[in-house]
Amino acid sequence: MSKTLYERIGGEPAVSAAVEIFYRKVLSDYRINRFFDNADMDKQIAKQKAFFTMAFGGPNSYTGQDMRNAHAGLVKTGLNEEHFNAVMEHLGATLVELNVPANLIAEAAAIAESTRNDVLGK
């Protein structure tokens, strides 16, 4: 059996390393940090882990509908394509910083990209 992207990228330790770098980028980005403003840090870190596990094609039980529900409140307060692009940017930059090979980055980006319509409630 061929290894999943999640395993090839490095599993849980890779997710933990990525979350720290990614979440610092997100919180420092004036374009999108308002969406994360009144959030409890520890809970957010757990959700970011869920985000990465998902983007790495790792085990998760989220459906498209779950993605819609999780972001529905944000869409109401203005979440749009540009915000989504900003998150994609930080995802790519984080993985580059971690020296993940380009072909694996492309795979992860494609998975995240596939959730666009659900996240944006389209």
Binding site: G11, E12, P13, V15, S16, A46, K49, A50, T53, G58, P59, N60, S61
Partner: peptide, 27 residues
């Protein structure tokens, strides 16, 4: 529980008497 992969930490419990296996404490 949510992920069954050691990522979400929602299944965290405690073993007061004996040290749990090392791999179950990763992260």
């Amino acid at each position: 529980y949510a992920c069954k992969k050691g990522t979400c930490h929602s299944c965290m419990v405690r073993s007061p008497d004996v040290m749990p296996p090392q791999t179950s404490q990763t992260g």
